[in-house]
Design a protein around this nucleic acid. Structure first.
Length: 206
DNA sequence: CCCTGATTCGC
DNA sequence: GCGAATCAGG
């Protein structure tokens, strides 16, 4: 792969949007994060544009799962994650005259249209019927899923939990993304419901 | 250990 | 110019 104009532009855009080099590399394809970083430097945009105070919060990398809302049934958090830099809807009919010159957030660019979401496959993930799973494990999963990283397909790595959550046919879909249990494709909680020993199945009292 | 970006340096 | 290897840090 070479650095065509398009690729360079996507690189610039994503970099300025705060995406990590590895994420950008994945998006571009055919390059490693090193290549991306190298290019970034050659382009002289190592300093992630913008307002000095380079405290650099957390851009694309969801690092802090935060404390899950009590009963909030995880909803548009997906959007929040996907579209970070977006002009606020502001349904207010007549906003007060620009009292605040503070842009708050420049670069409201719609972005490079990230989430390819999922095809339309109909097979819903391995969601075992509730009465067939260890109630404890199930309850635990429900709990854990509140703190899921909600990764897109492209964000999955060898060590992120690949348990699908939600309906692939809708935007209400993501992957767990929590750290996997070594050697398994899922995190501990999902492993618990995915791989159930015959013994526990048989011995389960209903 | 996983991840980040920064730098070096042979190609 | 490119990017793997390496370094430094979280």
């Amino acid at each position: 792969m070479s650095w065509t104009d398009e690729r360079v532009e996507l690189l610039k855009k994503m970099w300025n949007e705060g995406h990590s080099a590895s994420t950008i590399a994945k998006e571009l394809g055919g390059v490693t994060r090193n290549a991306v970083i190298g290019k970034v430097h050659r382009l002289g945009l190592s300093n992630r544009n913008g307002p000095e105070t380079a405290a650099d919060p957390a851009p694309a990398e969801p690092s802090a799962p935060k404390v899950p809302e009590p009963a909030a049934p995880v909803v548009d958090l997906a959007q929040v994650k996907a579209e970070r830099a977006k002009p606020k809807p502001a349904p207010a009919p007549e906003p007060a005259p620009q009292a605040a010159p503070e842009p708050a957030d420049e670069a409201p660019e719609p972005a490079y249209m990230p989430k390819p979401i999922i095809p339309a496959g109909q097979p819903l993930p391995p969601q075992p019927s509730a009465n067939e799973i260890d109630p404890e494990a199930l309850a635990n999963v429900r709990e854990v899923e509140k703190t899921a990283m909600k990764l897109s397909l492209l964000e999955l790595t060898e060590r992120t939990c690949k348990w699908p959550i939600g309906d692939p046919a809708t935007s209400e879909f993501w992957f767990c993304g929590l750290p996997v249990k070594p050697g398994k494709p899922y995190c501990e909680a999902h492993v618990a419901v995915a791989f159930q020993p015959m013994s526990t199945r048989r011995d389960r009292k209903r």
